[in-house]
Every structure is written in C-alpha cells, then in structure tokens.
Design a protein around this nucleic acid. Structure first.
Lengths: 240, 240
DNA sequence: CGCAGCTTTGAACGTGGTCAAACTAGGTGG
DNA sequence: CCACCTAGTTTGACCACGTTCAAAGCTGCG
C-alpha cells in the first residue's frame, strides 16, 4: 500500500481548469481546497484502488499515467481506459460503495484525493461544482460510447489509428507535442484496450511504419502523417 | 415529432423503486412529483431524442423498450444499449448540453420527462435524490465497462449467451419469466450491440437451439438450460 | 554479463465476415 | 380472402482478418 499523503491546493494548481469547474470566486475555491486536502503518490506498477475495495473518494490525477481494468472470475481481463493528468478516476465506485475495477499506475504518479461524501456535501451548496460533477460523469459515459463503437465496428488498423489519434489529442491539450509521444503502456495493454492481441498491435504498428505514417521505436512513437491516420479511422470500408 | 404529454405522478407509480431513491418522506415525494410533471408517448420506430438535439431532460422509461445508438460520419453505427421500464436514458447529453446518440423506441413506449435543471435544483436540497442521480450515472459507467469486457474479450457464443442472460435477468427483476422472452430487436440490432454481424447472431442462436440450450422461433426465445448459458459465458477458453 | 520482460516477425489455422439465395411472417391492397 | 410485397431471418459456401504458436531480437537493469 502506498499511503504517502501531502497537502494539496487546487487554487494554485495549473491543472485546475482540467479537473475543476471554472468561474469560482475565492470563497468557493477555498472550500474546495479544504475538501481536496490531500495528495497521494502511487508508484509505477502499484494500485491506486482495486476491484472490491471500499469506495470513499474520487481521484484527480496530478502527474503520471494510469490504466483501469475490469476482470471476470475466469481470469479474462479488459483495460477500460488510460488516464492522464487532469482526469478523474474512481467514478465506478459510486453505485455500490466499492470499486469494480483496478486502477494501476503505469508510471510514478500523484493524485489528489477527493472524499466523495464531502464532494456531495459541497456540491449541494456550490452549483458550479454540482454541475461539474455531473458533466465529468456524463463525459465518461460518452467516452465509453466511443470505445464501444470502436470495439464493435472497427477493424484492427482503424482501432489503432483511432487510439493513437485520441492519445496525441489529449496530450496536445496538455501542451505536449502533436507528433511525438511515448507510450506508457505495453502492446498487451493496448491490445486489451482495443480488443486485439498484442501481436496484432505490433504488426499493425509495423504496417503503419512501412507505409510511412508513423515511426515506431519500442515505446517511442512519432507521427509523420496525421491525415493518413484520420483517413484510416474514417475509411468507409465498413459501410453498413 | 411525438409530443403527446400527460400528467405524471411518481408517488403512486409502481416503478418508483426502480427509478427513484427510496425512503423519501411525503413532502420530498411531492416535490419530485412536481418536477417529473409530464409524460410522453413514443411510437414504435420513432425517436425520443436524436444525436445533436439540445439536451434538456432525462427520461425514465415507464413502458416500452428502447435502443440507444451512436454513429460516425462515415455511416457506421453501434447500438450502445437496450433499455426497458424503470431505466433512465439521456445521461449522454449532460456534458455538452446536446445529445450524442439516438434513442429509438423498439415498441410503443411511454417515458416520464425529468427536466435536468429542475433535477439539479431539487437534488441540492434532497440528499437522497442527489445520491440517487450519482448512483444512476455510476451504474451506467459500470454497465458500459461490462460491455467493453464483452466486446473486447469474448467470442461470438459467449457474447450472445451473456446478452441473453442479461436480458432475462433484467426482465425477471420486473416480474417476467426467467425462461421465456420476446426479443424486441432485430438480429441486426443484436449484432450491432454485440459487435457481430446479423448472420453470426442467427447462426449462433441456431447452434444453441441444436444443442438444446434454447428454443428459438423468430423473436420468441425460450431458455431450456440456463446453466449451460452461464457455462458458455464463463468458459475459461480465453485464459490470458 | 546475463537475465527477464517486452517486442517483432513468420507460418498455419480458425472464427467470424461476406455474398448469395431461399424462406418466413406480417401487413396491404386488389 | 388471397396474392403480393416488404422486412427480417436462416442457411450455405467461400474467404480474410486476426489469432495462435513459435522463435528470435531488443532493452534495460541487477
């Protein structure tokens, strides 16, 4: 268990606009600060929370990179998402007061702890916060619709192209390069997320590289032709 | 457009325990009644809301059966869920104030209209309602995790078995038979939901029928061996 | 240096997709 | 009332995409 906790402060956090509502006055900001009191460091490879664990808090990622995954009794498992700085995880725990998936840090990470009872309490008084919480949850629902579309109707190349575009888009929204990125996850984890085997992911990357669309060197990825990736995703092939 | 609206009342609705929080006092119940003021009838085949439409309300299904589906520009589309009485639809619209999927009635239906601004307002005062809204959204997130697991890691037979078991479980929770059901959707819609082609759905039903697991007669389905279906879903075949 | 974990690549195979045709049920109009 | 039409379903034959199994290569770390 990794329980190192540190005092947090949203008011002077540069990720504020990503995980908090906008247009709050000083008093409201302070009240949020009071609630998001602590941070927690999570070492690469260790869990922020695990399936079955009691749910108490949502977590805002400050630094680092996570995957969430669900599992069946018979040992199957499925990566349900990759999360980066500014994103909120733990929403799955609200229904039944315990988590239904694992959250694993793919690199050393730090999260802000947001106790959910306090969050509910405050969002009864701060309308902007209430609305924000609703939007965060709805956004997650819409994101998952997109993943279902991907898993249900796309071919391997389309899936991987969509995946890369999505990653680079989120990274560029955080000030990183639009054309270069380091994959924080293994081929197997990408495959699990995309409903493919790791060999297929590897092969498809190689194919993209042969075609001059990307440069792949292990986990390092350079995008040479973004438009080609977009064309692959929107290829009318599966017109039905 | 189908705008027939009728006065609603949650307080004496027999689906109350499905779509509303429990343990409310009379005053709270009345305030909810005041908000869920109207119902709307939706004819088989017509839309409750469509992609792009402005979001104003959530809908609680009173009678009937819906599908929701998302689409890409290039004509691909994906059924993201089937919803029945007591379930809430429209959550996708909260993030961006407009819907991102279509909701189609698969049989004549009636829904209760819950204006979302009013719902937010009241849930600031009625804690049980606030908590309920959060749980409804979280439940949808968890459900979608399950679909992702299905689409990402199961084979055709496993998917269809899981689908049938899920349907019959939800129906039996509403007082219907555990062994007999009428499919409200086409093979194509089932296929879209499960990431399979309609022919595969048909073939797999036939296979189950040959094996004596179910009896299939068009849309009418009788389950002869529930345990066999469960075994198919939990088959360790994809042990990885 | 040597080992473990991850990745790449090849060859053979199988599940599910594609295309096509026949069949069924339900609704409409002559 | 039956003939017809449409939408949906079933079944067959063939094919392709992605999986499986296997081996070799790369990278980083103790």
């Amino acid at each position: 268990m990794n329980l190192q906790t540190i005092k947090a402060s949203c008011s002077n956090c540069n990720l504020r606009e990503l995980c908090m509502p906008m247009g709050l006055d000083d008093e409201q900001m302070q009240r949020i600060d009071a609630i998001v009191a602590k941070r927690r460091k999570v070492k690469r490879g260790s869990l922020l929370f695990r399936n079955g664990e009691t749910f108490t808090s949502l977590y805002a990622i400050r630094t680092g990179f996570f995957k969430t995954c669900v599992a069946t009794e018979d040992g199957r498992d499925q990566v349900t998402g990759f999360q980066m700085a500014g994103e909120i995880i733990g929403l799955d725990g609200i229904v039944n007061d315990h988590h239904t998936c694992d959250a694993v840090a793919l690199e050393d990470a730090e999260v802000c702890i947001m106790p959910f009872d306090k969050l509910e309490e405050l969002s009864r008084e701060v309308t902007a916060l209430q609305n924000h919480v609703h939007k965060v949850m709805s956004r997650e629902i819409v994101r998952e619709h997109g993943v279902m579309l991907l898993l249900g109707s796309m071919r391997a190349e389309e899936r991987l192209a969509a995946f890369v575009l999505n990653l680079v888009q989120r990274l560029s929204a955080r000030g990183f390069s639009k054309s270069e990125l380091v994959l924080r996850m293994t081929r197997e984890e990408i495959g699990s997320y995309l409903g493919l085997k790791l060999e297929t992911v590897s092969r498809t990357f190689s194919k993209f590289a042969e075609e001059g669309i990307v440069e792949v060197k292990q986990r390092h990825l350079r995008i040479l032709d973004t438009e080609a990736l977009k064309r692959i995703v929107n290829s009318q092939q599966c017109q039905s």
